[in-house]
Simulated scan of single mutants.
Amino acid sequence: MEPGGPQGPLKRKESNMDKHIIPARQGAAFRVAEGQRIRIETPKGAQTADFFAFNAQNIGEWLSPNHTWAAHFRARPRQGDAFLSRFRRPMLDFTEDGADGVHDMMIPACDHVRYEFFGHEGHHPNCAENLHIAMRRLGYQIDVVPQPVNFFMDVSAQPDGSLVSPPNSVKPGGYVLLTARMDLICAVSSCPFDLPTDSWAINASGGPTELAVSVS
Rank of each mutant, 00 (worst) to 15 (best):
P172S: 08
Q147D: 11
S190E: 02
G119D: 06
Q147W: 09
S162R: 13
P167F: 05
F152W: 01
H132W: 15
N168S: 08
F117Y: 12
D183N: 15
D154M: 07
C186S: 01
N130C: 02
V144H: 07
Q141F: 01
F117Q: 12
Y175T: 08
P148I: 02
Q158M: 09
P167S: 04
P108W: 01
V145F: 00
Q141E: 11
H103K: 11
L131F: 01
H123S: 14
I133P: 05
I107M: 07
D111L: 00
Y115S: 04
F117D: 14
D183V: 08
G122F: 03
E116K: 15
S162W: 09
N168I: 07
Q147N: 09
Y115G: 00
H124I: 09
P167H: 04
A109R: 00
L131R: 00
N150R: 09
N130P: 05
S162V: 11
Q141R: 13
D183H: 11
P108Q: 11
P166F: 01
D104Y: 09
D154A: 11
E116G: 15
G139T: 07
Y140E: 10
T179A: 07
S165A: 14
C110I: 04
H123T: 13
L178I: 02
A109T: 07
E116H: 14
G119H: 05
P159L: 05
Q158C: 08
